Amino acid sequence: MTHNNNNAVTRSDDREQIDLIDLVMQLWRSKWTISVFVVIAIILAGAYLLVTKEKWTSNAIITQPDAAQVASYNNALNILYGNAAPSMNDVQLRTINRFYSAFSALSQSLDNQQDPEKLVIEQSVKGQTLPLNVSYEASSAEASQKQLALYIQQVDEQTAKELSADLKDNIKQQISTLKDSLDNQEKVAQEQKDLRIKQIIEALKNAQAAKIISPQIQQTQDVTQETMFLLGTEALSSMVQNESSRPLVFSPAYYQTKQNLLDIQNLNVDPSTIHVYRYVMKPDLPIKRDSPKRVLTMILAVLLGGIIGSSVVLVRNALRSYTPKA
């Protein structure tokens, strides 16, 4: 029994070996047919490579601006808000965040065009806000590098203008606030002067009623509103004239407010002096295209042509050798 089983296995292995050899021989005899399919696949792949646009991607890495790049803007904020002004680090972070928002908006706008453009901004290192990686895809290496640099400059200038415009609006608002403060202080000073004159006139009337002409007290620092009439009509009349011609008296806070107003009115920040980013790596010139991959495309074309050709040959031979059952 064992001997018979061994013989059956041997014959089965022989048939499998013969079938495999036969399969290889079929493919070899039809090598020209398979070659035709391979050539057709290569031609189609070549046509695809000719028609398909090349894609090259330029990359750049940016981070928050240096202190010098936002110095004029930061100085303006310090003059405008004094001790309430944000720190230099806050200014740097705010400007790069505005750049990120504007760049993202531009990226989305380009992607929604009839002929979309691929402009991307993302974190360079996952989990870290900065630095940022920006990239642009174009039909040539030079075009991708040039256009990426242009878009970065465009967003930088746009953001600087927006910061300058916001600053001008804040300056107008602050000027209006300071002027209102000065007006209020002047009104208070005028009211204090008018009240002082009224008090002296009232004391003069009392002195005239009491027929006091010359001062009746020696120490003027002890004079109160109730005892002012004791200064006499002559002194009180002179005081009325002096107080009427005397300029308004203001507190030191008034002059400080006026100084702040003058400083703010002279503020003039040029947007060209503001830069809201700094290059860690400038837009590079790509040396490898993203697509199409010519070598890979041709290899796949040869493999695909060979597979299709082999399949056709095997199916054709199988149909020829097929014998329907009676």
Rank of each mutant, 00 (worst) to 15 (best):
H3F: 12
A8R: 13
A8G: 10
V9F: 09
V9I: 13
S12R: 14
D14N: 11
D14A: 11
Q17V: 13
I18D: 08
D22K: 15
M25Y: 14
M25W: 13
Q26Y: 15
S30M: 11
K31D: 08
W32A: 07
I34N: 02
S35M: 14
V36D: 02
F37L: 11
A41Q: 01
I42Q: 08
I42P: 00
K53F: 07
T57G: 01
N59T: 09
N59P: 04
N59Q: 10
I61D: 04
T63L: 07
D66V: 11
A68T: 13
S72A: 15
A76D: 00
L77V: 01
L77H: 02
I79N: 10
L80T: 01
A84W: 07
P86F: 00
M88T: 02
N89K: 10
I96G: 03
N97Q: 09
F99W: 01
A105G: 12
Q108S: 15
S109P: 11
L110P: 03
Q113N: 07
E117F: 14
V120D: 09
V120E: 09
V120K: 05
K126A: 09
T129S: 13
T129I: 14
T129W: 09
L130E: 03
V134S: 00
S135F: 05
S139Q: 13
E142W: 10
Q145A: 07
Q147N: 14
A149I: 05
A149H: 03
Y151T: 04
I152K: 00
I152G: 00
V155T: 01
E157C: 08
A160L: 02
K161A: 10
N170G: 11
Q173T: 10
T177S: 11
K179Y: 05
D180E: 06
L182I: 00
N184G: 06
Q192M: 12
K193V: 01
D194T: 14
L195D: 11
I197T: 08
I200S: 05
E202L: 07
N206S: 15
Q208M: 05
K211V: 03
K211N: 07
I212E: 02
I212G: 01
Q216F: 03
Q216L: 05
T220I: 13
Q221M: 09
Q221P: 07
D222E: 14
V223H: 02
Q225T: 14
Q225W: 10
L230S: 05
G232A: 00
L236S: 06
S237W: 00
S238E: 15
S244I: 13
S245G: 15
P247A: 03
P247V: 01
L248V: 03
V249S: 08
F250G: 02
F250V: 05
P252L: 06
Y255D: 06
T257W: 00
K258Y: 07
K258T: 01
N260F: 05
Q265K: 06
Q265C: 03
N266I: 08
L267G: 05
N268S: 10
S272F: 06
I274S: 04
Y277I: 07
P283V: 00
L285P: 04
L285D: 04
P286A: 02
D290Y: 08
P292Y: 01
R294Q: 15
R294N: 14
V295E: 13
V295S: 14
L296K: 14
I299T: 12
V302R: 04
L303D: 02
I308G: 02
G309N: 03
S310R: 04
V312W: 09
V312H: 09
N317S: 13
N317A: 12
A318E: 12
S321D: 15
A326I: 12
